[in-house]
Nucleic acid binder design. Structure first.
Lengths: 181, 181
DNA sequence: CTCGATTGTCTAGCAGTGCTAGAATTTCGT
DNA sequence: ACGAAATTCTAGCACTGCTAGACAATCGAG
C-alpha cells in the first residue's frame, strides 16, 4: 500500500538483522520488489531513509520510556526504570538506536526545526527526570547530562568497549549519583 | 623513512582535515606517493590503519589527561581538570577520537589482549578518578561510568545532538554529582 | 661481470557502493 | 482508441576496498 512505509519497514528490518552496512539501495530495492530509482522517488537518498527509521524509533522509545516510568513506584524507582528502559531499547533495537543517535539521518537536533518525534522523545526523558534534577539545577540541563550518560553506556557497552558483565552495577551507580532522589 | 608511520600520520592528517570518509585507500596512497597495494603490505586494510591511529591517539590522550590532572590543586579540581581535558581532546582531535571510540579499528577493548596504549589510557582515568569513587564503590566501575558519561557528552555534542551553548554547565553538573569530592 | 632469484612496486581489474539520465512502459482522461 | 501523463526500469557514472599478476629493481653466487 503505502510504499513509503514499506521501504522504511524493510530498511529497518534489514538493518536490524544484518546491520546498516547491509542496507544497500540495491538490496533494499530487491526486497521491496521494485528497482532502485523507486527509492529515490520517496527519499532523497539513503540518509533520509535512515532518518525515517530514526523518527519511527523515537516514537517507540518515548512510549517505552513513559510506560516503564509510569509503572514505577516512587520518584527514585521512576528514574531507575527510565534508565533501564532506555538501555533495554538500545540493546534490543541496535539498528534503530544507531539511526537515532549514531548515524547521520539528516535530522535536526536540539533546534527549533527538530522533528516532533525527537522533541517528544526528549520530553519523555525530561518529564520523568525533572524531579530528580535537584535544587537550583535546570531540569533541561540535567536531562541532557543524564541522557548523555545513558548514551555513553549504551554505545560503549554494545561496541564491546565496556565489559558486559557489570552493566547493571553501572546503571545503579549512575542513577544513585545523578538523581537527587 | 618508516613508511608505516608515514601512512598512519597521513591517514590521521587527512581524517582530521576532511573526515574519515575522505580517507580512501586511493587518496591515502596518492598522498604517500605510492600505489594502493603498498598500503596492504603494511596493514591488512583500512580498519587496521584506523586502529593504528587509535593507538597513537590513546597514548596522547593518556598524556593529556595526566598532565591536566597533575596540574590541578585538590582532589575535586583534579576530577574537573580530567573531565575538561578529555572533552577538549575529543573536541580538538575529532578524527582521532572517532578512531578510538566510534569506529571499528579492530582493537580489543576491556580484555586481556587489549593493546597497551588503550589499557594505559583507561589507567590514566582510573588513577585520577579512583579517589572520587566514594565509599564501597569499586574504582574500576566508577571509572567506567565516568568515562561513559564523558563519552556521551563528547559524541552527542559534536554530532549537534546537544545544544552547544551549555557544554560547560553540563560538565560541571556531571562532576558535581558523580565525584564524591 | 653476468645471471638467476628474491624483493619491491605498479597496473589493471573485480565486485561492490550511492545515485541518476533517459528509455520504456503503464495508466488514464478525453 | 488515442495522446498525454505518470510510473517504472535499464543501463550507466564515478566512486569504494581490495587483490592477482605483470613488471622492475636489487642482490648474492659463479
Amino acid at each position: 500500500m503505502d510504499r513509503e512505509r514499506l521501504i522504511v519497514a524493510t530498511a529497518r528490518e534489514l538493518a536490524e538483522k544484518e546491520g546498516w552496512d547491509a542496507v544497500t539501495t540495491r538490496r533494499l530495492a530487491e526486497r521491496i520488489e521494485y528497482s532502485q530509482p523507486v527509492l529515490y522517488g520517496h527519499f532523497r537518498g539513503k540518509r533520509e531513509i535512515i532518518g525515517a527509521v530514526a523518527l519511527e524509533g523515537a516514537a517507540e522509545m518515548a512510549a517505552a520510556v513513559r510506560a516503564a516510568a509510569s509503572a514505577a513506584a516512587g520518584p527514585r524507582a521512576r528514574v531507575t526504570a527510565l534508565a533501564r528502559a532506555y538501555l533495554d531499547f538500545a540493546e534490543h533495537h541496535p539498528a534503530v538506536y544507531d539511526a537515532m543517535f549514531r548515524l547521520d539521518g539528516g535530522l535536526a537536533f536540539a533546534k527549533d526545526d527538530t522533528p516532533e518525534p525527537l522533541k517528544d522523545a526528549f520530553a519523555a526523558l525530561l518529564e520523568n527526570l525533572g524531579d530528580a534534577a535537584g535544587e537550583g539545577v535546570d531540569a533541561g540541563l540535567f536531562t541532557e547530562v543524564f541522557w548523555a550518560s545513558l548514551h555513553g553506556l549504551a554505545t560503549l557497552t554494545r561496541a564491546g568497549r565496556l565489559p558486559p558483565g557489570d552493566a547493571a552495577g553501572r546503571v545503579q551507580l549512575l542513577v544513585d549519583r545523578l538523581a537527587v532522589v
